[in-house]
Amino acid sequence: MALLELRNVSKIYHLGGEEIRALDDVSLDLDQGEFVSIIGPSGSGKSTLMHILGCLDSPTLGNVVLAGTDIANASARELARVRNRTIGFVFQFFNLLPKLNVLQNVELPMIYAGIGSRERRERAEKALEMVELSHRLKNRPNQLSGGQQQRVAIARALVNNPKIILADEPTGNLDTHTGELILALFRRLAAEGRTVILVTHNPEIAAVTPRRIEIRNGKIAHQVDSKLAGLDRVSKAPNEGQAS
């Protein structure tokens, strides 16, 4: 059984009477420990897919099954809990709270998990040690380089031991070298059994992941999984012909 399953998921918006299908009947399985990239130009529905995978949003139609539980119709409160316990986010602009220091930023998800202050601190320190930032605990985010900030964000994403890491253009604001190191970190997290989802518009970045899912016009246009029998299996989506 896949860790995260999307079954016939659609997200429909209504703009001035016009129906816009940001996601159109998408089905997708993500297994534990998979390192997968979602690629597509802006407006392709890539962000909408990411929001649904990240439990930030619920689909209009279809099912989202996370570890055997359908969360398509979950309440905002339940989704918040899922985000807190199961998903770790890494953003393009790091999204650290500027008023909090590194340690406090990493402690943030644990506050909402209701973990006591001493344990919070221990775990945050451990997570920061993992991204090799133990020496910057008391710094504010604006005193760190971009790569360091992103590592703080990764520590924050990991601190509640999530099954899924969802990274939205994590290297978009970093230089190539730093970006590569961040990607190596993700690869390692996937190797340790976490599902890492990399959302990007850059094919070069997407190339580091064994599995790549290309989104166009709200549909999966193209999927490559180089892990399968070394064949670079190419699966065509049903409506692929219409996609540009």
Binding site: A76, A80, R81, R83, N84, N95, Y112
Partner: peptide, 8 residues
């Protein structure tokens, strides 16, 4: 951000 990391 707080909501994304799990604040209800």
């Amino acid at each position: 951000i707080r909501k994304a990391v799990g604040a209800g």
